[in-house]
Design a protein around this nucleic acid. Sequence first.
DNA 1: CCAGTGATCAGG
DNA 2: CTGATCACTGGA
Length: 172
Amino acid sequence: MDRLSNIFYKQDALIVAQRLLGKILVRCREDGTVTRHLITETEAYLGEEDLACHASKGRTKRTEVMYSEGGLVYVYLIYGMYWMLNVVTGTTDHPQAVLIRGIDKIKGSGKVGRELKMDKSYYGENLMDSNRIWIENAPDSANFKTAPRVGIDYAGDEWKDKPWRFILNNPC
DNA sequence: CCAGTGATCAGG
DNA sequence: CTGATCACTGGA
């Protein structure tokens, strides 16, 4: 199966977030083990004006990667314990990212980072040529629902209720 | 409900 | 340097 390309990641985060549902996140460990994971839940973070997006604080060492063209990994440590895995989307100088909130049966972005053994060394990793993490194409699915994003009450009424969380429905 | 746990950022 | 904050989780 083909890797997702520059063309895919350059799209707006709202598009990428829903199109990533059903795609395959592939992880190659240091010991050579390869694991493949169905992406089941995502959230979109949309630029400096989105008060829930880290880039609303402007360009900092941490947010810098979001200002790149789509296709890079944005990871950061939260609460001193959990590595949050994001995919940078959009075009240069338009800071956006999509948070991977669920894979396979795993619900919760903190658990995703733990399962995939993410760490700081993945900051800026290029999903289009990395040999340890990438995403493979799969048909788009229309079988998903939306919901407000989690854990961003501080962002204010205009932003905290936007339905920018995308959840693949159980195909039962 | 709340503690754990540490990088990051704004402010002196 | 200091202190607040944090796109979370698991256990009272």
